[in-house]
Simulated assay, not measured.
Amino acid sequence: MEAFKVRELRHTDIDALLAFEIHNREWFESHIDARDPAFYSVQGVTEHIDGYLSDFADGTWHPLVIEDATERIVGRANLKSIHAPEGEAQVGYRIDQHLCGQGLATLALRHLIQQAQARWQLRQLVAYVFKENMGSRKVLGRCGFVLEQPAENAAVGGEYRFVLAL
Rank of each mutant, 00 (worst) to 15 (best):
E2Y: 00
E2F: 00
E2C: 00
F4Y: 15
F4W: 05
V6P: 01
E8D: 12
H11V: 07
D13K: 12
D13V: 08
I14V: 15
I14G: 02
L17E: 07
L18E: 07
A19P: 02
H23K: 14
N24C: 05
E26S: 13
W27S: 06
I32H: 12
I32Y: 11
A34T: 10
A34M: 09
R35V: 04
P37A: 05
A38G: 00
F39G: 04
S41T: 10
G44T: 08
V45F: 02
V45P: 09
V45C: 07
E47R: 09
H48G: 00
I49S: 03
D50L: 07
D50K: 07
G51F: 07
G51T: 13
Y52C: 12
Y52N: 10
L53R: 11
S54H: 07
D55Q: 15
D55V: 03
D55R: 15
F56R: 14
F56Y: 14
A57M: 05
A57E: 12
D58I: 02
D58Q: 14
G59W: 13
G59C: 11
T60K: 12
T60S: 14
W61S: 01
H62G: 00
L64C: 15
I66D: 07
D68A: 14
A69K: 11
E71M: 10
R72I: 06
I73P: 10
I73A: 12
V74Y: 01
V74A: 03
R76D: 06
R76T: 15
N78T: 15
S81I: 02
P85F: 05
E86Q: 05
E86T: 01
A89I: 05
A89K: 05
Q90I: 04
V91P: 09
R94P: 00
R94Y: 00
Q97A: 14
L99R: 05
L99Y: 00
G101T: 10
G101R: 04
Q102H: 14
G103M: 03
A105N: 11
T106K: 14
T106E: 13
L107Q: 04
A108T: 07
A108D: 07
L109I: 01
L109S: 00
L112C: 10
L112M: 04
I113W: 02
Q114H: 09
Q114G: 00
Q115H: 02
Q117N: 03
R123V: 03
R123C: 06
Q124A: 11
V126I: 12
V126E: 02
V126H: 01
V129K: 01
V129D: 04
V129N: 00
V129C: 03
V129Y: 01
F130G: 01
K131A: 12
K131G: 03
E132L: 04
N133C: 03
M134K: 08
M134R: 11
S136Q: 08
L140N: 08
C143N: 04
C143Y: 08
C143H: 05
G144H: 02
V146T: 13
V146N: 03
L147P: 03
Q149K: 14
P150D: 12
P150F: 05
A151P: 03
A151N: 06
A151V: 11
E152F: 09
N153C: 01
A154Y: 06
A155R: 11
A155Y: 07
V156D: 11
G157I: 08
E159W: 06
E159P: 06
E159S: 08
Y160I: 00
V163Q: 06
L166D: 02
L166W: 02
L166I: 08
